[in-house]
Design a protein around this nucleic acid. Structure first.
Lengths: 235, 235, 235, 235
DNA sequence: AATGAATGAGGGTTCATTCAT
DNA sequence: AATGAATGAACCCTCATTCAT
């Protein structure tokens, strides 16, 4: 007995037949402009707050920050999981964009492959990749349909970027995309208090050090095995 | 990875060895043996739970795990801050022990200095250094009197260990003790869900990579400036 | 058991048959055809849902079932009370129709008087008399002007039907119309969960037993006093 | 990660070993007197309110009426289902007592069998059998272990009582225990508003009429089939 | 000293109602 | 006239903290 209407999941096309606009090719009901704006503001607010306070910020706070009532958040996102998913989706897309740009750079100049990887990592940190931290939580549905494509694209692009660097002989061969993503997530994870955002510069220092450790020649033997993101969730 | 072994070295229990016979010459009230035992069990339980679930676990849960009533926790620790402080104090002492052991090793063989640093980092991770994560929170009183000595000792010992490696020409010179501690905290921080504790092996992979990045020769230039722990809190 | 058959007898739709051509001679604003249709659909939906889920179904749910937006419900009915009143009005009319049919039958054959009462009771149950349950709530305005006529007619007709049976010596004389209506309401009241609608057959069993108890000769002495519907509300 | 301790479901026997009382035969921790008192007050309050307002009264109201804080209700009853179950359990027990008393009466004098049934029905109504209405809701676990015995006893005793009346030739043979219980529930169901409690006398009138319908000789043929309570839940 | 119980405040979620398109 | 969106109040439930035994 779900009585909420969310245009994203089940667009209500009831009134679509009376659409008087001269563009009859559109089938789906067009959401209102202000609703769209609100939706975006909520996701944006949530993303910022995830980075600062982690994924379990009070919903009311997100609403306040987005400048809407609390119930509006629920109109757009059935539950916390859905909001988290949208935030992750957004960030995933942006980061994938960055990785693809890196691939372009690497393809243009093989010698720049590892440099492109570096650039990507730092840019991803700036792009709030830390807001993706909920994907590590055990109750996050990593295989949700809405996420599959974006995640696939992200993994492909990062893998591609790493492959370029590996092919150029610049990236050690005993690490996989999962290693990079987890370490990146961990090192950029939101700190408990907003006051510490001054750590941004720290984060980049440590990312830089970690990247140095990824270069060839490998300076140590790694324990465990290289892994993809899925491996993490096999429990 | 047994963390219950060095119970007796805790500062709180100093003097506990005295028997229970009436000793009227001492002024301070002698705590009952079972009270002391309870106190230890509470700190122990809290430390484990901080690692697994973060610092905001329900107090009742800590009490249950410690096998005491909830009110007993409040009898021993006025508030959450005090319990957190005690946990941090305990872990700080243990990790400082590890660092001092490393110094001994390094002093015995200069060529082993960086190796001693490696050993220390991995051992600290096993020693639940992740339970120290609350020190990153803005409402944690880093300068509390009870903590000063232990923190001083920890910083001194890590600094000493790094200095040995630096002197041996094995550790890059553009990083300071704060860098190591923050990155170590971040990379070993508790994951939101206990289910993911299978990541332990991952953690060691990434620590290893990070350590590789610390070696000489430096493979990149670091942004920002080397910093101590205090720097983090200057906001 | 089709309850959509007698739509056209509803008071609200009187005059709806007039065409849509401009008819300036009438003073009252002529409601648009689609508005009327919506109004009917809302009342219809609400009636069904009252029977299934009780009178406190979410308004949005009623709107959805009626195929209109939620605000449209408020356009037609200022508040929940008004919607409830319309539903009761509708059902009252239908049940009164049934009672009058019963009177006709009874008048044709005195011996069939009690049988006509039986038929009426079962038909009323099928006619969703359960949707009238809100009249038992203390905040229902039993004396609302819109309701007076219909209620009068209903009471008159049931009273008439009972009088026939009483005159035929088939109905015990110590019960009044209020007894019948309340027991009928109670025995057919909606069950908390829609899943139990399979009880329909049960309802008829129990109505039948109750009717048996109404026959002469009376098999017991009744406590309290025979009462009309108003008596119930005297508190 | 259930962190509540409820003595009913999992009595905490942790401290039982230090029981210094001279009655070592008790194993389970004895609940505090005031806690027991509160528990009873909550159940009592809930029972009254179920009768008056149905099973979905605000928990805070129940707490207020019981004179305790809202969280205390949750300490004693994990969720609403558990509170409802306890209320049902209590009422079931009382009503079963009544039925067994009726059996005794009937056994003493066969001619009094139906009279005993009458007495039982009216007494059950006074005993707030209406508070059992939640058992009709589809989300009520009719087969919960805590309930099985009581329900068995109730059904057995009512069946026994009916059997006596049937054997005495006073009760029609085409009805079963389910018929009686459902009709009894329906006719005594809580009315939406407390104001209507003046209906008590009405309820007894209608029960009386219904009972009259149960007597031999049967005055009509019943539709459907006699059924037990379980039949209702087969959907 | 230790405990179980009680409490009130706060976050999550739903829903009747109002607003803007 | 009709609609989708927004809102705040109410309820549910949890948990840090205090109280009584």
């Amino acid at each position: 007995m779900d009585h909420r209407t969310r245009w994203t999941t089940e667009p209500d096309t009831r009134g679509a037949a009376v659409d008087t606009a001269p563009a009859p090719q559109r089938r789906v009901a067009r959401p209102r402009a202000d609703a769209l704006r609100n939706r975006e503001r909520i996701v944006d607010a949530a993303r910022e707050m995830f980075v600062e306070h982690g994924a379990d910020v009070p919903f009311d706070e997100v609403a306040r920050r987005a400048g809407v009532g609390n119930a509006t958040v629920y109109r757009h996102f059935a539950d916390r999981a859905e909001l988290v998913r949208q935030v992750v989706l957004t960030v995933t897309g942006r980061v994938a964009d960055l990785a693809e740009q890196g691939i372009t750079t690497a393809d243009a100049d093989e010698g720049a492959a590892f440099g492109a990887l570096r650039t990507f990592v730092h840019a991803a940190a700036d792009e709030r990749i830390g807001a993706m931290c909920p994907i590590l939580a055990p109750d996050f549905d990593l295989y949700h349909p809405d996420l599959l494509d974006a995640r696939e694209r992200l993994e492909q692009s990062i893998e591609g970027l790493m492959e370029r660097a590996r092919a150029a002989g610049q990236l050690r061969t005993d690490i996989a995309v999962g290693d990079l993503m987890v370490a990146l997530s961990q090192l950029t994870r939101p700190l408990p208090g907003t006051a510490c955002m001054g750590m941004d510069s720290f984060i980049h220092r440590h990312l830089q050090l970690f990247l140095d450790g990824l270069m060839t020649p490998a300076r140590s033997e790694l324990p465990g095995a290289a892994a993809t993101l899925e491996d993490l969730r096999q429990n």
